[in-house]
Design a protein around this nucleic acid. Structure first.
Lengths: 149, 149
DNA sequence: TGCATATAGATCGTGTGCAATTGAATTGTG
DNA sequence: CACAATTCAATTGCACACGATCTATATGCA
């Protein structure tokens, strides 16, 4: 092991642990998402819509911490794949509302098994996973809040 | 809070917590890396080289869990910025060895303060941060190992 | 009402990530 | 030695991320 102690030591950096773990997770999910023709970011957008349908781009972005520069092309691809519909809000023409199509809703059943399948290799109990998730989410919250200033 | 319980609930997903926290971290680092003209991935490559200089692309990739498709253009940009030199290994012409330039080495001093600056907003003790880092790194290791099969 | 301001989404440019392919160089095996 | 298999880096194509900018629409306030 190199560089055990310094502030710049890679192994000490929480940021790098999250960065590399996030990519490792993405690769693990890919195996299950490829057959559905979805990428991980597309999958999380669908997660949001499965929880609550008919949201604006902004509402999806707030939930996922993504902006329109990322979401607009992604949502167009989901639309091209037939999973969602995009339509301007009649009341407020600035907004675009995103709705699931029938096939988009149907995809949910096929996605149900994915978290468990990926979870199999984690070697964590459900409680441990929950605790870690909460801890990391709390961290993200603090980073997100501090970014406003 | 929506969708408290299901396996597909966004808030329950460790993967999403890591994914969004990783991006939040990236945005926090950007504030400090922009003045240095570096992106976060470029910064972690330099972290590796500051620990040990004169590595092949493959060795850097193994350390960072990145492949040549990502690293080759990134390293070319670091070379264009004058931070590293790229040269074929005389003994094994397949390999490209990456060495820091004087300015690349000098950048280290300016980077020293960054982890502490970002760490300020985390609200974690050093021990807590270390524990969390180890836990997430362990997870990444298991995901990485399972990807081989 | 009228006009400055704010908001939502789209667009553009740059820089990752990564699978798949290619091509050069090396290694293993008979 | 020959030659197939392997290894390494580069390349290509696609899909994010995100800052910056643009346009259209809506809101606030005199």
């Amino acid at each position: 092991m190199t560089g055990k102690t310094g502030a710049l030591a890679l192994d000490n950096q929480l940021c790098f642990a999250l960065y590399s773990a996030s990519h490792a997770f993405g690769r693990a999910y890919r195996r299950f998402l490829d057959p559905l023709g979805l990428t991980y970011p597309q999958y999380v957008v669908l997660l949001v819509l499965w929880e609550q349908d008919d949201l604006t781009v902004k509402e999806i972005g707030d939930r996922l911490f993504l902006d329109s520069g990322t979401l607009t092309p992604l949502l167009k691809r989901l639309e091209a794949a037939g999973h969602v519909r995009r339509a301007r809000d009649r009341k407020d023409e600035r907004q675009v509302r995103i709705c699931l199509t029938e096939t988009g809703r149907a995809l949910r059943e096929k996605a149900e098994a994915i978290p468990k399948n990926v979870g199999c290799v984690l070697g964590l109990s459900l409680d441990e996973a929950r605790a870690l998730t909460a801890q990391v989410a709390k961290l993200r919250g603090r980073l997100h809040d501090s970014a406003k200033s």
